[in-house]
Write a protein that binds this DNA or RNA. Structure first.
Lengths: 135, 135
DNA sequence: CCGTATCCTCATCGATACTG
DNA sequence: CAGTATCGATGAGGATACGG
């Protein structure tokens, strides 16, 4: 089964906003990022992934994986010969292009939490800390 | 009225994810970014902003502005002497720290839309195009 | 003009049970 | 193991009307 790609049109958005909304649609929701982060540690089976992404139900995991696959962010391999069937999910090359985005969100979020706790005049702008995050 | 800052605990998230969720909570939803983008063009009045952010209702605009103010991203000035009252919203210095994040979302979203249309092997990674976006 | 109050709809997400 | 089916809760967001 090839990968169809439904994209919300966001016809109401003017150019710049549309791209931002596209990203948010894909990364938003409760589980997309946790799943991607989980897979960034290497290919995983369904159940394995469910254990890693704490709290997610089979229904949600299945649904989210389907969406991520449709967008080319991960690939799905079935070993039909095994009993019971084994399915492996792998973060696609293309999925790696999300890392800068995730890193930006991570850096700002981290900085913001500190900012809220002790409102300093001008806290240092976000710096690169992505690598160990995704390790 | 000073600015209280409620922060969802995300106690279920392990370190890295929590920061990402913090950011997504703040930028997620339908209107946060459009409002910030709208204010990036300079201070605006309530009605003015509502016209700029097409489709938003007074209720949502009011609610979102309150949240953004609580997080220190914008400031609210009231000219009580004017009739009728005039209220001006300004993107705070701190709000500017979001630009790199917005830029990352914008760049990836733009790249992704192209990627979906014509799946090239390795499209050029996101490049800097933030400044004119926010102009 | 600057909002708030009320009521409503709908998508998202969770719980549980079940199938191949 | 890898999901699907069904039902139900919750909250974001919209429509409309009204108050300061």
């Amino acid at each position: 089964m090839p990968i169809p790609q439904p994209l919300p049109s966001h016809h109401e958005c003017t150019g710049a906003m549309r791209s931002v909304r596209d990203s948010l649609d894909l990364l938003g929701g409760k589980w997309k990022l946790p799943i991607i982060l989980g897979l960034s540690g290497g290919p995983k089976r369904f159940k394995q992934l469910q254990r890693e992404v704490t709290g997610i139900t089979a229904k949600m995991l299945s649904k989210e994986l389907k969406e991520l696959e449709m967008n080319g962010l991960l690939t799905r391999q079935v070993q039909a010969d095994a009993v019971p069937v084994a399915v492996t999910y792998t973060l696609a090359e293309y999925g790696h292009t999300l890392f800068p985005v995730i890193e930006a969100l991570h850096a700002w979020g981290q900085q913001h939490r500190a900012h809220i706790m002790r409102p300093a005049p001008l806290p240092a702008p976000p710096t690169a800390v992505a690598e160990e995050v995704l390790a």
